[in-house]
Every structure is written in C-alpha cells, then in structure tokens.
Amino acid sequence: MTRLITTTSALCLLAGAAQAEGTLSVYHWFEYIPQELVDKFTAETGIAVTIDTYDSNEAMLASLKAGRLGQYDVAVPADFMVEIMAETGMLDTFTAEEMPNLPNIAPQWLDVPFDPGRTSSIPYQWGSTSFAVNRDVYAGDISSLGVIFDPPEELRGKINVLDSQNEVLILGSLYLGIPQCSTDRDQLRALSDMLVAAKQHWASFGSDTAKDVMVSGDAAAGMIYNGFSAKARAEGANVEYSYPTEGHVLWMDNVVLLKDAPNRANAIAFMNFLLEPENAAAVTNYAAYTSGVSGVESFLDEAIRTSPENNPPAGAAPGAFAQVCDEETQKLYDAIWINLKK
C-alpha cells in the first residue's frame, strides 16, 4: 500500500513536472529513434514528447506546406531538403549560446553547404546509398554500379531498385559519369536510355521494402541504404554492401528547428540533448548509420562501430550529396523518371 502511494505520488510529481515543462512535437521518419531515448529525454527534462512520422522527405515537405507548419517544433530532413526548406522560409535559427553542445558536432559536419555554420540544423545521422548483393547467389565482382545497371546473368530479374527518383537518377548519373543537374541533351538522353534498358532486368521498385526483399530472398541484389544493408546482414542474409568505384550517394539527416515552433525552447533543449555523444550513439546503435557527433565511439556497439557498411574500404571513391537543381532542370529529370515508370 505504501509502495502504491509512493508510486502514485511519484507519478503525480512527474506529471506535474511534465505539465510545468510543457510538450514537444517531433515530426520524424518512421522507425528512426529508439523509444528509450525519448523516455530518457522526458525523464531528464519533464518535457512530454509526441512524435508523428513520415516516409519520405517530399511527404514531410508536402504536409508542412499543406498547413502543418506551426504545429511541429522539429523535423528531420535530409541535406538537400534542409536547403529547400531554408529557401522556402520554413526554418527558424538559433544562436551558439542557445545550443551549448554545438561544439560536439564533428568538425567536417559543422560548416556544411546546406546550412553554413549550423544556425538552424544539427546532424542526426548520415550514411550512404549504393547497392548490396546476396553472395549466395552471385560471387563475382561487385565494385561497379554496373551490377545494377548492366547486371550479370545470375542477377537479372532479381534486382530491387529504390522507388525514389533522386537516388535512382543520381546513381545512374554516377554510373555514366554525368554530373548532377546536367542540362546537356546528349547526357540526359543517354541517362534515360540507359535506365530504360536496365529496367528489363529489375524485379521491383521499393524503398521501405529494400531491406526485407534482401532478407527474404525476393531480390538477390538491390539499391540500398548502408544501414538497411547492415540490418539485413544482422538478420541472417549473406549480403555484401558495395562502395562502387563510380562513387555513391551520401546523405545526412538533420534535426531542424521549424519556423513558428510552438515550443521553441523545448525544441532547442531536444536538439542539444541529441548532441550529447551518449544520446547520439544510442540513435546510431538503433539505426545502424553513423552519427555526426564527436566522441560517440566509446558508446557504440562493437558490431556497429566496425561494420563494413559504415567503414568504406581505404581508397573507396568519394560519395556525392544530392544537389538541388533549378526548376527548368528538375523538369527534365522528372520527365526521365516518368518515362522510366510509365
């Protein structure tokens, strides 16, 4: 009985604290933050957190544009989307004084082109996109993007491709050695023709299923994010992730402070919390990508820290971030994508 009373009063206190400290509305990717970490934040600060999820950068942008801006405090867009949101005036800024953990950001992620000097975003996780191959099916060389775009006999008809315009067109451009946002007619025609010819060897388009099809064996090779590939391997599939010689796509998800955030101070507290190495490492241990915070190494699981997916071999070709094309150029890439999927 005494224990019950104690628990109840403790709960009341906690509830009271939460009331006093208010709430935080997070707009986040699906399955991208461990619940224990959210609970830890609430326990430390008394701020109650609600999370809504989305499954693509564009879906998040569309929803904010359709009137949800002003309802959320923070969101987690990828690099190019931070740039787009900043251009559309959807982001608020913070000062270095407000964010005491700002120096924890790893030096190479501090002054990034999509948010110079980090005034409205902090790194969440970063990783790469290329492809993985089931080594039980194909034992040959996988150092070229040709495995996806001009596949060997064993893999034809067993390839899953991300259902994402950006990733498919950028990897295709890397394969042909074409710069991003090209307006050169011959280059764009070559890209379009190459993709249409490659499509006959593909079994399916799917982004959120990219890991599952590799684990189940529906696909023997697939475009994939490095964390998904690591998870597929952890689930028992004999997959190897490739860092192709033509290059790969780099991306970084960032927590941004949204304009008109209803709980601005709480949002900054949350971002500051995520910059603690221990907390950043908790996300990495869950999502199997790489944190953008210094000093996380001692908190990482051994398997994550040393995974081949997160540690490109020495001499691997550099990755490229997605570039934001201007409207006229983007139209051409949209047309190539529609033509590919028509």
């Binding site: 564009e58 569309a62 315009q165 593909w202 079994a203 399916s204 299923t209 949209d334 028509k342």
Partner: peptide, 26 residues
C-alpha cells in the same frame, strides 16, 4: 500493383500519389 507487382509501372493511383508525396510534387 506496388506490393505484388513490384511497382515497375505507374498505375493511375500511384501516378496521382507520386504528384503529392514524392519527388515530383506537382
């Protein structure tokens, strides 16, 4: 079409969805 057919070709439904939720945004 998306889950069983592999989403290789647009259907009317996925064509409309793509205009609102995906990169095309039209």
């Amino acid at each position: 079409p998306n889950l069983l057919g592999g989403a290789k070709n647009f259907m009317i439904g996925s064509l409309i969805e793509e205009q609102f939720k995906r990169s095309l945004g039209n």
